[in-house]
């Protein structure tokens, strides 16, 4: 059958050739330019760049903030996904559609809207200010923007799994005398863990490199609320191409390492899920 198919269906050379040429020109070649420029800076240049306190602070904020934001999204995403899949209430479908808003809303628009809301005189900032919580123009603001842009990932990865989760398993646990929270932590959570981690990884990857929604609310104070992508932009504006390329390459490498770690965690949680069955 497959031999027949290969002979009957046309266009293999054309479609694959076109796709490969396109990918090479749009993706591979430019990325090669990045690697070339980054390597060309030499070891001493790299050392100087990566040991600068400002670079380190920016990388720490981008990576640390993204890990924190993805963790928050995992918890809230689980809650929202659970409520949308399991319960019936008026307006459920509208709320379900709204989950995708951070995907659809341009990041610059989200950025200025969040800043206006959380600024000291803003609708939300006004209430937080007396509590001593300042969100806009602080690292907390960076976190808020990162949670916003990564929010849909966890909900959308969890929903199909939650829908297909067999209620029998839960009911069996309960008929055996498990309490509701025991069922949740011992039965449901282990089954959801691998999917939860997939959503976590997607939200993480998005937040690490996020730029548009963050720069307005961050206030961009060097060493405090300045994210790594902004530092790249500043290096480009000073025509420091090599520095920008090196920082870009460092960011790509670091997020790659983070995602490999998440994949390892996922493999481990898969075993957990299987053993708890």
């Amino acid at each position: 059958m497959s031999i027949l198919r290969q002979r009957v269906l046309p266009g293999f050379g054309l479609s694959l050739g076109y796709a490969l040429t396109y990918l090479s020109l749009i993706v591979l070649l430019p990325l090669a330019a990045l690697a070339w420029k980054a390597v060309g800076m030499g070891a001493s240049g790299w050392l100087q760049l990566l040991s600068a306190p400002r670079t380190l602070a920016a990388l720490r904020l981008s990576l640390g903030g993204a890990v924190l934001a993805a963790s928050i999204n995992a918890v809230i995403g689980l809650l929202v996904g659970w409520v949308l899949v399991r319960y019936r209430f008026p307006g459920r479908r509208v709320f379900d559609a709204l989950v995708d808003l951070p995907f659809a809303l341009p990041t610059a628009v989200a950025g200025i809207a969040l800043t206006t809301l959380y600024a000291p005189q803003g609708w939300l900032g006004r209430w937080l200010e007396p509590l001593g919580i300042q969100v806009a123009y602080t690292p907390l603001g960076v976190l808020v923007a990162m949670v916003f842009v990564g929010f849909p990932f966890v909900v959308r990865t969890l929903q199909p799994v939650l829908a297909s989760l067999e209620r029998d398993v839960e009911e069996a646990a309960e008929s055996l005398g498990a309490r509701r929270w025991q069922t949740f932590f011992r039965v449901i959570l282990p089954l959801l863990a691998p999917t939860l981690l997939t959503g976590f990884a997607l939200a993480l990857a998005r937040a690490v490199g996020e730029y548009g929604s963050v720069i307005f609310i961050a206030g961009n104070i060097p060493g405090r609320s300045e994210i790594a992508p902004l530092l790249i932009v500043q290096k480009l504006e000073q025509f420091d191409y090599a520095g920008a390329a090196a920082l870009g390459a460092a960011m790509l490498l670091l997020s790659f390492v983070l995602l490999v770690l998440v994949a390892l965690l996922q493999r481990w949680s898969q075993r957990w899920a299987e053993s708890s069955r």
Binding site: L23, P30, L34, E210, P229, I232, Y241, L252
Partner: peptide, 25 residues
């Protein structure tokens, strides 16, 4: 490779073209 652009920072997506076609590219 097709999925790659989703996991690259938007700033890096612009940067790679500056490194190709910019004045010093």
């Amino acid at each position: 490779l097709i999925d790659l652009p989703f996991s690259v920072s938007p700033v890096i997506s612009g940067l790679i073209y500056v490194l190709m076609f910019g004045a010093q590219g």
